[in-house]
Design a protein around this nucleic acid. Structure first.
Length: 493
RNA sequence: GGCGGCUUCGCCAAGUGGACUAAGGCCACGGUUUGCAAAACCGUUAUCCUGGGUUCGAAUCCCAGAGCCGCCUCCA
């Protein structure tokens, strides 16, 4: 059992060994909180959530840091254009701090609904201005940065390894006609560490270079260094941030610290809609709050995990419907298992069942070890469920202990690692129920009366009346399930 | 123009040169079970974009071509 990650820096799958035994430092680029989170955020943060959960499962102590960008992210590129937060705040007639608060809350609300574990630290860029200023000062001292008209730029030519992550060469970048010529810069590909604030710019801080605000790339370097040290085990983020964002982070951090910044770079792929990248500029992005109107958050989580994190994921209603059915199938099995446990007695625990449990557990963990192959892991869960369904439906006497051990495996794999089997899903932003969710006591009691009545009718072979009850219930979304050991019911959407 | 990636069953999607006569899910069809259903189970459906090559052996490696996509402005 050896965990491997595909490292974007080396472009190879590598065995994972943290810098300090048993302890993992992990930083993931967080959202810029100027709008509600969308499906792209979901894919990214669900993917990294599973990585964190898995690292913890295999015994690592993980410190997981994910920033909240609340300043410095400009609309056009890293050094020109308007600040996204500021622009949106003006549009909504709000204080920037107020706007940031609204969308930060929205972000956490949706991430909670997706059943992501919260990062250990969610540092805000604006709360780390001194750290960022200090980093800029160090870069100036070391000769990697220069002041120009109240702004500070990183001198890319001084950092010879610039381009090592994205595979870009300096000459090519300069040839790229899309970088606007900025007369303040020595070199067109130099990037801003600190920007001078224009007179009307309300987000501003005092600095040795006058009033201004930090550049977008800077916060990640400053905050990861503060909370995780100068060399991180894992840095995650979206593929589209490889260049320039992560390339600039490497330059700043390694120039300042003179040691490797990140040992494993992990990048997740994009969400597409009809095969096209989902993007703000294309206007085809789907917010999670919108998506949650049509699908349960856990369905979306499951959907994300049915493809590999490094593959693009195409969003469509057909794909989501299929995912929903698949998830329901898995949950049904666990539900039946737990109903069976409630009725089970002590008794025989066959060895062959334990052998099977070990077999599927190994299949699952082997898949996870191979660069977090969640589709493979889920396949193992389906294979396991086939066996469990057969067992549960067989009527064979199985000890309570044995059934509980099966359930324990579902908890480990499906709940602890994948986070898709969740007895109490948080549905803050949706009214959806997955079929196995627990209803209130009164509903349960009424259903019991109805089911008992219908079963009396069935005993008396009064099929017309018993089918009438079933049909009427199905019309309001309640499905009855007559099994050898009794009738159960569930609510479908 | 530069850099990178993808193309596997009707759809989605794994696949770590040899146990791939290719996982798993959805859909469809047949069957078992059921009073009838539902659920569940069993069965049926691919030689891996095309053409070369390397190898005892390739979906997996190399070359060429076709198509699609991403990055090189902001985006997870």
């Amino acid at each position: 059992m050896t965990l491997k990650f595909y490292n974007s820096l080396t472009k190879k799958k590598e065995v994972f060994t943290p810098l300090h035994e048993g302890y993992v430092t992990m930083y993931v680029c967080g959202p810029t909180v100027y709008d509600h989170p969308h499906l792209g955020h979901a894919k990214s943060y669900v993917s990294f959530d599973v990585i964190v959960r898995y690292l913890r499962y295999i015994g690592y102590k993980v410190r997981y840091v994910q920033n909240i960008t609340d300043v410095g992210h400009l609309t056009d590129n890293a050094d020109t254009g308007e600040d996204k937060i500021l622009k949106r705040a003006q549009r909504e007639h709000r204080e920037p701090a107020e706007l940031v608060e609204i969308y930060t809350r929205s972000y956490f609300e949706d991430m909670d609904a997706l059943n992501n574990v919260r990062p250990d630290i969610s540092p805000r860029a604006t709360a780390h201005i001194p750290e960022q200023i200090e980093l800029v000062e160090r870069l100036i001292e070391k000769g990697y940065a220069y002041v120009s008209n109240g702004s500070v730029y990183f001198d890319v030519q001084k950092f010879k390894e610039y381009g090592k992550l994205s595979g870009r060469k300096q000459e090519e970048l300069e040839a790229g006609a899309r970088i606007e010529i900025n007369p303040e810069k020595i070199n067109p590909s130099d990037f801003a560490l600190w920007k001078k604030a224009a007179p009307g710019h309300i987000m501003r801080w005092k600095s040795p270079w006058g009033e201004g605000f930090p550049g977008w790339h800077l916060e990640c370097s400053a905050m990861s260094m503060k909370y995780l040290g100068q060399t991180l085990d894992i840095h995650g983020g979206g593929l589209e941030n490889t260049f320039p964002h992560h390339e600039c982070e490497i330059a700043q951090s390694e120039a300042a610290n003179e040691r490797p910044f990140v040992r494993y770079w992990i990048h997740n792929n994009m969400v597409t809609v009809n095969g096209q990248k989902m993007g703000k500029s294309l206007g085809n992005f789907v917010t999670l709050k919108e998506a949650f109107k049509s699908y349960h958050p856990l369905t979306i989580r499951f959907f994300i995990l049915t493809s590999h994190y490094r593959s693009p994921l195409d969003y469509s209603n057909d794909a989501l419907d299929a995912a929903n059915k698949g998830l329901e199938r898995l949950l049904n099995t666990v539900k039946s298992l737990r109903e069976r446990i409630a009725k089970a007695k002590d008794g025989f625990s066959p060895d062959e069942i334990y052998e099977k449990l070990e077999h599927y557990k190994k299949m699952f963990l082997d898949a996870m070890d191979e660069d977090i192959n969640t589709p493979g892991a889920i396949a193992a869960l389906f294979d396991l469920s086939k066996e469990v369904n057969t067992l549960v439906n067989s009527g064979q006497e199985i000890s309570k202990k044995c059934l509980e051990d099966i359930d324990k495996l579902y908890q480990e794999l499906g709940e602890d690692i994948l986070g898709i089997i969740e007895p109490k899903p948080k549905t803050l932003t949706t009214t959806f129920t997955l079929s196995w969710q627990v209803e209130d006591k009164t509903t349960e009691d009424i259903m019991k009366v109805l089911i008992d009545t219908r079963n009396e009718l069935r005993k008396a072979k009064q099929w017309q009346l018993s089918d009438f009850i079933r049909t009427k219930l199905s019309e309001i979304g309640i499905v009855l399930d007559d099994r050898p050991d009794g009738t159960t019911w569930k609510k479908i959407k």
